[in-house]
């Protein structure tokens, strides 16, 4: 399995959790939405951590590009963390309109970010790290499984 295939699959998994949370919120069940969004948050943060602690350092070490694409991705991770926290706050306050606003912004942010990773960065990783990609995928698999 390539790095791209594996992490793309995890993107889709995060999408599923996002959709479940949004649907609960739309049905008016904010408790269920809070639980589902909590799962989404955990999955996304594990994904970010896996990239930031395992994949990006490997890419940076191999290419010597520490201020390149990985830096942009880290910055966008930070922006998404803020949006996710704001959405969590909105759900806790019972403000579903605010939640939908944050969720909409988050979804577009997340998808354009995924697009850049899937179309540009992951293929670069697979190319640059071809000799160690099997090992990297195994490590990422272990990290993304979570607790």
């Amino acid at each position: 399995m390539t790095i791209r295939d594996f992490l793309m699959e995890d993107h889709r998994h995060c999408d599923d959790l996002f959709a479940a949370a949004e649907q609960s919120a739309n049905a008016g069940d904010l408790a269920a939405a809070g639980a589902a969004f909590g799962q989404f948050r955990d999955a996304v943060f594990r994904h970010f951590a896996g990239e930031e602690q395992t994949l990006f350092p490997a890419f940076e070490a191999r290419t010597g590009m520490s201020m390149g694409p990985t830096q942009v991705m880290r910055m966008e991770h930070g922006q998404m963390r803020e949006l996710i926290d704001a959405a969590v706050d909105a759900l806790q306050d019972g403000n579903s309109e605010e939640f939908f606003g944050q969720a909409e912004t988050l979804l577009i942010m997340m998808q354009q970010h995924n697009m850049k990773e899937e179309n540009v960065l992951y293929p670069m990783c697979d190319q640059q790290l071809a000799d160690s990609s099997g090992l990297l995928v195994e490590r990422l698999q272990a990290e993304l499984k979570g607790a």
């Binding site: 201020m67 694409p69 830096q71 942009v72």
Partner: peptide, 11 residues
């Protein structure tokens, strides 16, 4: 600034 240049080359 060097970093900004590098950022732009990807972004």
């Amino acid at each position: 600034m060097q970093p900004k240049q590098a950022l732009l080359s990807f972004d």
